[in-house]
Lab assay of single mutants.
Amino acid sequence: NQASVVANQLIPINTALTLVMMRAEVVTPMGIPAVDIPRLVSMQVNRAVPLGTTLMPDMVKGYA
């Protein structure tokens, strides 16, 4: 099973992602693959992402 990107903290809307905000976890359903974490750094979320939420492609501006 491939790990997905999960929020390590509450990420407010329009926040630029940093490594500290994300962790890799095997979850269902799968979200953004953990291998993409370096690519996500400095991209912004388009909604508030609660702690423990799996990041989906439509939550990150410019990802999809």
Rank of each mutant, 00 (worst) to 15 (best):
V6A: 05
E25H: 06
V26L: 07
M56E: 09
I13D: 06
Q9R: 08
V20I: 14
T28L: 04
I11C: 04
P38T: 12
G62Q: 14
S4C: 05
L40F: 02
A64Q: 15
M21L: 06
G52D: 11
V49I: 11
V35T: 15
R39F: 14
L19H: 07
L19K: 04
R39Y: 14
A24D: 15
T18P: 00
I32C: 04
A16C: 06
L55N: 01
P12K: 10
N46M: 12
M22Y: 02
I11W: 02
R39P: 03
L40W: 02
L17A: 00
A48V: 08
V26E: 15
L10N: 13
L55H: 01
L51V: 10
A7R: 02
S4R: 02
L51G: 14
A48G: 09
N1D: 15
M21H: 06
P12S: 10
Y63C: 04
P29N: 14
S42A: 15
A48D: 15
T28W: 05
T15G: 07
N46R: 11
P33Y: 10
Q2T: 13
A3H: 13
A34C: 07
T28E: 15
T54F: 02
V60H: 01
V49T: 09
L17W: 02
N8E: 09
A64T: 15
D36F: 05
K61G: 06
V60A: 02
P29F: 13
V60T: 02
L51Y: 13
R39G: 06
L19R: 05
P33L: 06
P57T: 05
L51T: 12
I13R: 06
V6K: 06
M56W: 07
Y63D: 03
L40E: 00
T53H: 10
A24W: 06
V45P: 03
T54R: 04
A7Y: 01
V27G: 03
Q2I: 13
D58P: 08
I11V: 12
Q44V: 12
I13K: 07
Q44L: 08
V6N: 02
R47A: 10
M59C: 05
K61N: 13
I11S: 00
N14P: 02
N46I: 09
V60R: 01
S42I: 03
G52T: 03
D58E: 14
A64W: 03
N46D: 09
N14K: 06
A24M: 07
P29E: 14
P57V: 12
M30R: 03
M21R: 03
T54D: 01
G31H: 01
I32Q: 00
M22S: 00
N8T: 14
N14T: 05
T53S: 07
G52C: 13
V6L: 11
L17S: 00
M21C: 03
E25K: 04
M56I: 13
A3F: 09
L40Y: 02
N14A: 09
I37V: 11
A24L: 13
M56H: 10
T28M: 06
V26P: 10
N8S: 15
D58N: 15
S42Q: 06
A16L: 09
V45E: 00
D58K: 09
L19C: 04
V26N: 09
V49A: 05
M59L: 07
G31I: 02
V5D: 01
P33D: 15
V5A: 08
L19I: 05
P29I: 09
D36I: 05
V6T: 08
I13F: 10
P12M: 08
Q9I: 12
G52N: 12
N14G: 10
T15V: 11
S4I: 01
T18Y: 03
N1G: 15
K61P: 06
N46A: 08
N46K: 14
M30W: 07
A34Y: 08
S4W: 02
T15P: 01
V41N: 06
A7V: 12
V20H: 09
N14R: 09
A48H: 13
G52I: 02
M59N: 08
V5G: 02
A16H: 08
R47Q: 14
L10K: 07
G62N: 14
P29S: 07
G52M: 08
M59W: 13
T15C: 05
P33E: 11
D58G: 11
M21P: 00
R47M: 11
M43S: 06
T54C: 04
I13S: 12
A64F: 07
G52F: 06
M56F: 06
V60Q: 01
L10M: 09
V6G: 01
N14W: 08
A16S: 14
Q2F: 11
P57I: 07
I32N: 01
A34T: 06
A24P: 12
L51K: 11
L51A: 13
M21K: 03
V6P: 00
N1R: 03
V41W: 05
A34N: 06
G52Y: 08
Q9G: 06
T53C: 05
T18Q: 06
N46P: 03
G31L: 01
Q44I: 13
T54L: 05
D58S: 10
Y63I: 04
I11Q: 00
V27Q: 14
N1K: 04
V41L: 14
V26S: 15
T53D: 14
A7H: 01
V45T: 11
G52P: 00
T53N: 14
A7Q: 01
Q2W: 14
A7K: 01
Q2K: 03
P50V: 09
Q2N: 09
G62P: 08
T28Y: 06
V20K: 07
M43Q: 04
N14Y: 11
